[in-house]
């Protein structure tokens, strides 16, 4: 029976919603093959995050709480995860795919000499083992794979696994001992540039408004893309073209090499729809595309396409969305 360990991700005391999708994966495996799962929260001062996970269906919420874990540094986090995997006898380690998990999980897998699959979107039991489906080639191919070995590491796409309903019973919170002084010390935290306050993260938000090449400068991006996002309470995103042009920061990029999002509603404003961009948003429920070029490839995936200039269409949208 699989013993699953879900690695929780949080940001300044707030659990990332994608973690709950990873518990959805764990419940799916558990209900198909028996077995149970635990959640591990690493950090410093994580009692609140642990508390918010007590009804996620885990048999216990483990905390590795130590001042040395204040920042998610790969050398320390991977060492702690490897220790917990050994100590708890986990056979499967899973986290939602993000820059956090992609930095840390492969390192922990390396420490334990085990294989790993990234961006898993489906799982099913198969003769005492499991078969997985994962995304590759910028979303242009899906691979059905097996991963040999008694221990497997995985990142899963949050959009592919539903957040399970909260359980009645509350799992106990169990502290795992961490001795900060014995952890590796090769990476030192210097600084972190905070995300612009006020808008949600694109990977978490139900609506994402994204701008592309048609946006001519940062002021216009803020006025049009930011303005529409604020009118909808949405997150903002960007195509690679705008990041390359220095108009938007790297952290807004949606696509194969940026963030992968799957909100309820995605506005592609002046985005042509290169396959690398589509790889980051095509699992969205409803896609709206606004583009001057009626032949833009983005219209091939859009549920609602409006041929028009974003400089005219978007101000009208914002005006008509405003109450009153």
């Amino acid at each position: 029976m699989p013993q699953i360990l879900v690695i929780a991700e949080h940001d300044q005391g707030q659990l990332k919603a994608a973690t709950l999708a990873a518990t959805g994966f764990a419940r799916k495996v558990g209900s198909a093959a028996g077995g149970q799962f635990e959640v591990l929260v690493l950090g410093h001062g994580v009692a609140g995050v642990a508390e918010s996970l007590r009804h996620c269906g885990a048999v216990s919420v483990l905390t590795a709480d130590d001042p040395a874990l204040r920042h998610p540094l790969a050398d320390k986090f991977a060492a702690v995860i490897a220790g917990v995997v050994r100590g708890r006898g986990a056979t499967m380690v899973v986290a939602a795919a993000s820059t956090f998990s992609k930095d840390i999980l492969p390192r922990a897998a390396g420490l334990l000499d085990t294989g790993m699959l990234s961006d898993v979107i489906d799982v099913w039991p198969d003769g005492g083992d499991f078969t997985f489906k994962r995304v590759l080639f910028a979303g242009n191919a899906l691979a059905t794979v097996k991963l040999d070995g008694p221990l497997k590491f995985l990142t899963v796409r949050a959009a592919a696994f539903a957040t399970p309903p909260p359980t009645e019973s509350a799992a106990p919170v169990v502290a795992v001992p961490v001795d900060g002084a014995t952890l590796p010390n090769q990476i030192e935290f210097v600084a972190r540039e905070g995300r612009a306050a006020g808008r949600p993260d694109a990977t978490e938000a139900p609506i994402v408004v994204s701008g592309g090449r048609a946006i001519r400068n940062a002021d216009d991006f803020e006025r049009l893309v930011g303005g529409l996002a604020d009118a909808l309470g949405a997150a903002v995103g960007s195509s690679r073209a705008l990041v390359d042009a220095g108009i938007t920061p790297n952290s807004l990029q949606i696509g194969q090499t940026g963030k992968v999002v799957a909100p309820n509603l995605y506005f592609a404003l002046g985005i042509s729809g290169a396959i690398q961009h589509l790889a980051g948003m095509k699992d969205t429920r409803v896609i709206v595309a606004v583009n001057k070029d009626p032949e833009a490839p983005v219209f091939e995936v859009a549920d609602y396409g409006l041929v028009g200039d974003v400089y005219e269409v978007v101000p009208e949208l914002i005006a008509k969305l405003k109450p009153g």
């Binding site: 294989g115 699959l117 691979a143 059905t144 794979v145 097996k146 070995g149 609602y304």
Partner: peptide
């Protein structure tokens, strides 16, 4: 340790409708 069983193209997302105006959208 990874064994590829098969590769497939992802499900094709159907293009939806064109709308003519912001009001219609």
């Amino acid at each position: 340790r990874t064994k590829l069983l098969r590769l497939e193209a992802p499900p094709h997302r159907q293009a939806g409708a064109r709308v003519r105006s912001v009001d219609e959208l």
